[in-house]
Write a protein that binds this DNA or RNA. Structure first.
Lengths: 225, 225
DNA sequence: GTCTATAGAGAGATAGAC
DNA sequence: GTCTATCTCTCTATAGAC
């Protein structure tokens, strides 16, 4: 990635941001060296410190910035009123579109929580709780009105978010499905899940206990040492 | 973690395995140093090389070993015949139980794929494809028999696996729900999702385009430099 | 099989010239 | 704002005594 010599602060900052997102999403925060990052941007490693105080702060800025964007975008997209089904549909459409639009940032926000120092982690977790709460309220409302039949709205919240957020682990631009197509398919699945009401039927048919066998022995390379 | 001095190969091996799972699940492969690992086991860092040739091989052994266990356990648990609903129920019960039983290993198998070298990654991805295929066949069969009404069975496969595998990111032993309780709740949600058939209803109500706003400017720390 | 000691490479971060 | 140079630390991996 060649670079025009000379000063160009804002452009450099944006280039660092983009290169960082890409490198962290691909290799992980701990595995990305600042030398790699600088090379990708086309500057020297020491110059990075004009843009952050240390590597941890860089990660936190990326994640916090994304969370702020996400919340602002969600608040703008959500329906303030309407049926729970309509609101859940809107939530799902938004969530899918956002994940398709910025898969790297979303992925990092899940996968690099472990790399945040305690204070930074706490700040991000609080924002994430808030996001979960907004979905949880829709599900609770829908259960109260009888639109949804969920055994456990907290589990449903986690299940729906995991299902939708999984998109950023496999989505590639230019794939078989458009954003619209993905929204329609996932909206259908989420609504079906929330409407539920048929939980008990099939379970009796296969309700023997499913045991998980014990771990194999000698897991590490046999024959060494 | 104190240790009885002297030789004890098999016990040391198991201790390394367990400490490695814990450290990698907590901090990640790249962030775990072999000094940390050795300290956790109670041996010196150089001694680890009696148990693996290098750090990468250690990771691959952990992941491959887990995938072998997982496949063997799934094959033992799956119903060879029966309705698609019964087979999907059984699949879900198994998957939930396995994730509750070994959350660390499962988590590593998702989160550390990025840390595998190309050949090792290819081997693991192939095993994972096989696992997805087994779920995909159940969904296809159910759609053929009319038990399931899914717009896209490939998306449903990914969605169900993401939803179930998310368990290992938040499950802690001794929580509010037992394994049985989780199996029942998740089986209910998976079956409701698969039965579907109501996709188009609510969508018209909230079908305006949901736009994702542009990225904020100045994402990195303002005012530095 | 475990230990001590160390080689050799690469990491994050800083200083000062331009 | 960027560069070169370097400090200091930690990392993986190896060698050889016991």
């Amino acid at each position: 990635m060649a670079r025009i010599a000379g000063s160009s602060g804002p452009r450099t900052e944006e280039a660092i941001r983009r290169a960082g997102l890409s490198l962290i999403a691909t290799h992980g925060y701990a595995a990305m060296s600042l030398r790699q990052l600088a090379a990708e941007v086309g500057i020297q490693q020491g110059s990075l410190y004009n843009y952050f105080r240390n590597k941890q702060e860089f990660l936190f800025d990326l994640i916090r910035g994304h969370m702020l964007d996400l919340h602002a975008a969600l608040d703008a997209a959500l329906l303030p009123e309407g049926s729970a089904e309509a609101r859940l549909t809107r939530f799902t459409e938004f969530h899918v579109a956002y994940h398709v639009e910025r898969p790297q940032e979303v992925f990092i926000c899940y996968s690099e929580l472990r790399s945040l120092e305690p204070d930074n982690l706490a700040a991000v977790v609080a924002m994430r709780r808030d996001y979960e709460r907004k979905l949880g309220e829709i599900l609770d409302d829908g259960r109260a009105t009888g639109e949804f039949h969920l055994a456990d709205t907290r589990m449903a919240t986690l299940a729906i978010l995991a299902m939708l957020s999984g998109i950023c682990t496999w989505y590639k631009p230019g794939g078989r499905l458009s954003t619209d197509g993905l929204q329609e398919i996932f909206t259908g699945m989420v609504l079906a899940l929330a409407r539920g009401e048929t939980q008990a039927l099939a379970r009796g048919e296969a309700a023997e206990t499913v045991a998980v066998p014990a771990r194999r022995r000698g897991a590490l390379r046999a024959g060494i040492g």
